[in-house]
Design a protein around this nucleic acid. Sequence first.
DNA 1: AAGCAACTCAACCGCCGTTCA
DNA 2: TTGAACGGCGGTTGAGTTGCT
Length: 287
Amino acid sequence: MGRAPCCSKVGLHKGPWTEREDELLTNYIQCHGEGNWRHLPQKAGLLRCGKSCRLRWMNYLRPDIKRGNIGPEEEDLIIRLHSLLGNRWSLIAGRLPGRTDNEIKNYWNSHLSKRLREQGIEVREGTSKDASQRARATQKKKENTNNKSSSHNRKNRQDKRKKNNGVEGTGEIIRTKIYAPKPTRLTPTLSNYNAMESSSGSDIPQMDNTTSGEEKGDTVMEDFEVNWSDINEGGFFFGEDDPNHVLAWDFPSKDRLLESLYQEYSELLNPEGYQVQLNAFPQTFLL
DNA sequence: AAGCAACTCAACCGCCGTTCA
DNA sequence: TTGAACGGCGGTTGAGTTGCT
């Protein structure tokens, strides 16, 4: 037995949202909070699918979304994070307060990748607006659609995962894992914390360092093995002596924040002597 | 002013890992 | 244990806008 059947898409609105729809969605979320996207449209009186509602809220209606042009500091951070993370837009967006993954993705595809290429800087492979490549992608998509069964096969995916994680054939490709932090949206209030300390029950989230990165939903990156329990998440880390004592780092300036974020990923992903660096890296945020 | 190309960005699509009955 | 739905993500599309000829 599976879950109850999903909402039928028949009769649902598509395309641009109207002011009335925005209003209904905003009012509903303000009253009941985010989540339960499947039932939200019906309860809010919207003729949209839950997925569409979620997207509209996340990319446009959320009150903490920053409007306006992407500034030079943000642009710099996007470029550097992209060089480290590739097209991991949600991860990148998680490090840019008020910016959405969609916005960053669009900005990259329409501005940055082109500009970097013009400057002769090689960029990681991402989306291509080239017509021939588009056509190829569309063709490939059609082929995939024709070849796959109506519902994807769980076992096949699990087998594929096992293959990727372990010894594969005679090639002896041994992969290990790295747990990068789950993307955390930095709210404006966060930057107001000033070298403060916190104990249980405060406004600062408490961490459970007994769970693995995978259990916490962190992003798994292959080819490295890191003991993530040593590492902080979202700008918080544990005191040296007391693992239940949570510290928040200071944000003396916007520039330093951006620099810290870059350093965080840079050190995290540096394959050379990563273990030593990672063990020491929370200290870099201590004043 | 008209026609065209390039650009922008909101929205959609399909995939995948997780959750749940 | 199974399989369908959910939630989230990256890739792609296409209508609207802007700029050029």
